[in-house]
Design a protein around this nucleic acid. Structure first.
Length: 220
DNA sequence: ACCCAGGTGGCCC
DNA sequence: GGGCCACATGGG
């Protein structure tokens, strides 16, 4: 079932090659900045950080908050997100000396729990970090994934943990597959799921229960 | 002038 | 446990 959906999406959209970033650390910063924000805007912030040569753990840690706010302004919620970046950096430098290998040495479970304890890192950001920066097999669930589950009915619950476990149990434990699948679901959501008329051309048109409104995103 | 974007935490009931 | 709200910029 899930693999069939995956194949259709892959055939239609092709390989997405997520996450676009030069370093693992950049992935983490991007994961926090992209919360409820278009990637285009995040790119501007990332570019600013690179231009200032501060896109490294200790350098970012030592950056004054005011400066950080200015640099990440294009990606929105800049005061909230500068705090969230600070929370992560403090956690990261204090516990792992700003060393990603050290952090990712943890067991999947400890890693998840520790990241989730950081203020501003919720389930999706946590799992994006683990999958795309840590290369470990957790499935990232987002609002698009929940909507997909609703429309085909794949699973009744809308609870993050349950949906994540369902995908992980019903797919081969393949990091690359998890990366691509999540990216493809996002691509699907961006292109086809908003307005009913477009559904005719949707690769998942068959069996879709999209009947109602233009916007029925789970968290709006 | 709207509407939306690769969420999260706070507060209320 | 669920429902609503603030957070903010840039693009369509």
């Amino acid at each position: 079932m899930l693999l069939k959906i995956y194949d259709k999406l892959l055939n239609h959209f092709g390989n997405q090659n997520w996450w676009p970033a030069d370093t693992k650390f950049e992935v983490i910063v991007g994961a926090i900045l992209t919360q409820q924000t278009s990637w285009k805007n995040v790119e501007k912030s990332i570019k600013n950080l690179k231009n200032e040569n501060v896109l490294e753990p200790k350098k970012l840690f030592n950056l004054p908050v005011k400066t950080l706010e200015i640099l990440i302004r294009p990606s929105g919620f800049f005061k909230v997100k500068s705090k969230r970046l600070r929370s992560f950096l403090e956690f990261f430098v204090e516990n792992y000396d700003g060393n990603l290998d050290k952090m990712f040495e943890l067991s999947l479970n400890d890693l998840r729990n520790n990241l989730l304890s950081v203020h501003g890192i919720g389930p999706e950001t946590c799992d994006s970090i683990i999958l795309y920066s840590g290369d470990k097999p957790v499935f990232v669930v987002d609002a698009y994934t929940l909507r997909l589950c609703e429309r085909y009915p794949i699973i009744k619950t809308k609870k993050y943990e349950e949906v994540r476990e369902f995908f992980e149990k019903n797919l081969p434990k393949d990091v690359n597959l998890f990366k691509e699948f999540h990216a493809l679901i996002v691509e699907l959501g961006k292109n086809y799921c908003k307005i009913k008329p477009i559904c005719e051309k949707c690769p998942l048109n068959e069996g879709c229960k999209h009947e109602i409104s233009n916007n029925d995103m789970p968290n709006r």
